[in-house]
């Protein structure tokens, strides 16, 4: 009984915090305090969070090194733009089409490649990501290498915010469900999991499809904010950008992925004026983190209210011991 009440209290608190965050930013945008430049980066931040959290499901929780995330993003972007700009359906349908198309692509690619392990899987997904890009480049209907331009801007702050929250909620809940336990067991020891009766292929494909679907969502949001999409934008370097966020945040930590995605986007903003040294500083930070914290900023731990309490009480205890 008490437990249930506490859970409700926690849920309510989360809702209040999110609503407050939403309202504050909405207010800042409405009053013009947050100018176009910061709005663009806020959008990028949201999209990067979706990408990092969804890739983390595949790389961090399932332990399958995938390097083709940008490919799924591309499919989501192009599928949604075909629906909205070329066929004239509403944005909502575009988003759903983008997610669905990316998830289907994730399934088609996942079934054969997920038999592979480690490096082999990484190479196969890298290859598939590139195949997606090259195929898109050679379809004249979607503009070939020049891509599609003139996409109307429909990714507003409410849409972005809701999409980001839904992504995080769905993935966190999935991980905390029995599916999630099975997925994590695959990461920890595939053979043991199999002996225990876990259908490892099924769970690997499931994680892959869900991750790809949310990458498609990110692609759809991206396309409807930046006016133009072209296949070249979604090359393997984009996949690495996302991978860097996941590794930096800590493989297997959703809060880590969120923090790292936000941090890297913000870093980009802060360093924009120093074009020449930007990449050096960026790389240096990565190197330092990897040397001293190879498990990423948060490792596979989550940052929750309880961990704040822990840090607080821990300090309390240690100071008391002195």
């Amino acid at each position: 009984m008490e437990d249930k009440r506490r859970r409700w209290g926690k849920f309510l608190l989360e809702v209040i915090v999110l609503a407050a965050l939403f309202t504050v930013v909405q207010y800042l945008i409405a009053t013009g305090l947050l100018n176009r430049y910061y709005q663009i980066n806020l959008t990028l931040m949201g999209i990067n969070i979706i990408l990092a959290v969804s890739l983390n499901l595949i790389n961090g929780f399932t332990g399958q090194l995938s390097l083709g995330h940008a490919g799924f993003m591309a499919i989501g972007a192009f599928a949604s733009v075909i629906m909205t700009t070329l066929l004239g359906y509403p944005f909502m349908i575009g988003i759903l089409a983008g997610m669905l198309a990316a998830a289907v692509a994730g399934f088609i690619i996942g079934v054969p490649t997920l038999r592979l392990k480690g490096d082999y899987l990484a190479i196969a997904t890298l290859g598939f990501g590139e195949i997606i890009r090259v195929v898109l480049q050679n379809i004249d209907y979607i503009g070939g290498p020049a891509g599609i331009s003139g996409i109307s801007k429909m990714t507003t702050w409410p849409v972005l915010f809701i999409a980001t929250v839904i992504t995080i909620v769905v993935i966190v809940n999935m991980i905390n469900s029995s599916y999630g336990r099975a997925i994590i067991s695959v990461r920890e020891d595939e053979i043991a999991a199999e002996i225990m009766g876990v259908n490892t292929t099924k769970y690997k494909v499931l994680a892959f499809v869900v991750g790809a679907g949310f990458a498609g969502l990110a692609g759809a949001l991206y396309a409807h904010y930046f006016y133009i999409i072209k296949p070249e934008t979604f090359n393997f370097l984009k996949s690495f950008d996302i991978l860097v966020m996941v590794v930096l945040g800590g493989l297997g930590s959703t809060t880590g992925a969120v923090i790292a995605a936000a941090f890297i986007t913000a870093l980009n903003v802060v360093l924009q004026e120093y074009a020449a040294v930007r990449m050096i500083i960026y790389a240096l930070i990565l190197i330092i983190v990897m040397i001293y914290r190879p498990q990423g900023l948060l490792g596979n731990k989550e940052l929750t209210r309880r961990s704040f309490d822990k840090i607080w009480s821990g300090r309390h205890v240690s100071s008391a011991n002195k």
Binding site: N35, Y37, I40, L44, F226, Y227, K230, Q272
Partner: peptide, 10 residues
């Protein structure tokens, strides 16, 4: 392309 837009806004 996205960074070009970003830079212009800045």
């Amino acid at each position: 392309t996205d960074e070009a837009m970003n830079v212009s806004a800045a």
